[in-house]
Computed example of a mutant assay.
Amino acid sequence: MIINIKDIEKFCEILRRSGKKIALTNGSFDLVHSGHVNYLNEAKKTADCLIVGINSDKSVKQYKSDKRPIVPQEQRALLIDNLKAVDYVVIFEETTADNLIEKVKPDIYVKGGDYTEDTLPETATVKKHGGKIKFIKMTQGCSTTNIINKILDIYAK
């Protein structure tokens, strides 16, 4: 289910009152690949409900490139929402998930193993609300950038 950012805080309060443990992760999820699926499957194991924050098109352009995303935010949200591991999806506008974390107040904040607590921008916000951070090992060789580069290599010649 895709939840509007305006409703996510109240929605999470209802989940918590019903005794659900909430995990939150986020990303652009542009050109979804098996690495994303593996990551989300592992993230789901950490809690009763997995909420995935999808960076808006505007925020992806700000932190990745003005050429990204390839897939528009509504399509990315629909695709991620239809993966087995994902319970809820929300699109957010900022380049970091701090404001989303303030609304969701997850029990577990899940990020890729390419981060540490020292390099993760959202660490202080997660800890402020009593959440724990779980890092998941990334699938080697799987990245949207690699896919884009392979397409360019094959078709640009």
Results as ranks from 00 to 15, higher is better:
Gln140Met: 15
Thr123Cys: 08
Ala23Phe: 09
Ile2Tyr: 11
Ala156Arg: 15
Val52Gln: 08
Ile5Pro: 04
Arg17Val: 14
Ile101Met: 04
Val126Pro: 02
Thr139Val: 12
Asn41Ile: 00
Glu122Arg: 06
Gly112Trp: 01
Lys103Ala: 12
Tyr115Lys: 08
Lys105Ser: 02
Glu74Asn: 15
Ser56Ala: 02
Lys150Pro: 02
Val71Glu: 03
Asn26Ser: 15
Asp7Ala: 12
Asp98Trp: 00
Val71Thr: 12
Ile136Gly: 07
Asp98Tyr: 01
Asn41Asp: 10
Val60Trp: 03
Ser34Phe: 13
Asp30Cys: 06
Ile148Asn: 05
Val110Tyr: 07
Gln73His: 05
Arg16Phe: 07
Ile147Gly: 03
Tyr63Gln: 13
Pro72Leu: 01
Gly19Arg: 11
Ser18His: 14
Asn4Pro: 12
Asn146Gln: 11
Asp153Pro: 00
Leu78Pro: 00
Asn82Leu: 04
Asp107Lys: 00
Ser18Cys: 13
Lys20Gly: 03
Leu100Arg: 06
Val104Asn: 05
Asn26Asp: 12
Lys20Val: 03
Ala23His: 13
Leu15Cys: 13
Asp81His: 13
Val60Ile: 10
Arg76Lys: 01
Lys150Phe: 10
His33Asp: 04
Ile70Ser: 00
Ala77Val: 07
His129Gln: 05
Ala124Arg: 14
Asp48Phe: 07
Lys84Ile: 12
Lys111Leu: 03
Lys132Asp: 14
Lys127Val: 10
Asn4Lys: 15
Val32Asp: 06
Phe135His: 05
Leu15Gln: 15
Ser34Gly: 06
Lys111Glu: 10
Cys142Trp: 13
Lys150Asn: 14
Gln75Pro: 00
Leu83Trp: 07
Asn26Arg: 05
Ile22Met: 13
Lys84Phe: 13
Asp98Ile: 14
Tyr155Thr: 13
Lys6Pro: 04
Ile22Pro: 07
Tyr109Lys: 06
Gly113Tyr: 08
